[in-house]
Computed example of a mutant assay.
Amino acid sequence: MLELYKNIKKFRVQNDMSQAELAKLTGYTDRSSIAKIEKGLVDLSLSKIEAFADALGVDPGDLMGDEWESSVVDNARLDLAEHFNYDAFNIAKFQDAEHLDGISAHTMVCENRSEYTTKPLNCIPIYGTIPAGIPITAIQDIEGYEEIDPSMLRGGKQYFGLKVKGNSMYPMFMEGDTIIVRQQPDCESGQVCAVRVNGDDATLKKVIKQGATTVLQPLNPEYEPIFFVGSVGEPSLEIMGVVVEIRRKL
Results as ranks from 00 to 15, higher is better:
N220F: 07
Y223I: 03
Y170K: 07
Q191I: 12
I180T: 02
M174W: 05
G166F: 06
G233Y: 13
V192C: 07
G233W: 14
N220C: 04
G166S: 02
Q184D: 02
I208A: 04
V207S: 06
G233V: 09
L219P: 00
V215Q: 13
K163G: 02
V181A: 00
Q210L: 12
S236W: 14
G199N: 01
V181R: 00
V164Q: 02
R196I: 15
D201H: 06
Q183R: 15
V197P: 09
Q210R: 09
F228Y: 14
P221C: 01
V232R: 14
C193I: 15
L219G: 01
V229S: 11
F228R: 05
P235L: 11
E188K: 15
E175H: 07
G199M: 02
C193V: 15
G199K: 01
Q184F: 09
K209W: 10
V195S: 03
S236Q: 15
I179R: 00
G230T: 14
P185I: 11
R196G: 04
V215Y: 10
P225R: 11
G230E: 15
T203W: 03
E188Q: 15
T178S: 05
Q191C: 14
Q191Y: 13
A202E: 10
E234Y: 14
K205G: 01
V192A: 04
K209G: 07
G199Q: 01
N220D: 03
C187P: 13
M174C: 06
Q191L: 11
Y223T: 03
D200S: 07
V229C: 08
Q191V: 11
K205A: 00
Q184P: 10
P185Y: 12
P221W: 05
R182S: 07
G233E: 09
K165R: 14
Q184C: 12
V197W: 15
Q210H: 09
V181P: 05
S236R: 15
D186G: 13
P185F: 14
I179G: 00
E234G: 15
V192H: 08
Y223F: 08
I180S: 00
Q217D: 06
L162N: 00
Q183V: 14
M174K: 11
F227N: 13
T178P: 00
C187S: 13
I226F: 12
I208T: 09
L219M: 08
P218G: 03
S189T: 15
G176E: 07
A194W: 11
I179D: 00
D200Y: 11
D200G: 07
Q184I: 12
T213G: 01
I226Q: 11
G176V: 10
C193L: 13
P221Q: 01
I180H: 00
P225S: 09
D186Q: 14
T203R: 02
D200M: 12
P171Q: 02
F227S: 10
N167C: 05
M169V: 06
N220T: 06
P225Q: 08
P218W: 04
I226E: 15
L219R: 00
R182Y: 10
V232W: 14
V164P: 09
N167H: 08
E175S: 13
G166A: 03
S231A: 15
E188P: 06
V215H: 10
I180V: 07
M172L: 08
G161A: 06
S231I: 12
F227D: 06
Y223R: 02
G211Q: 07
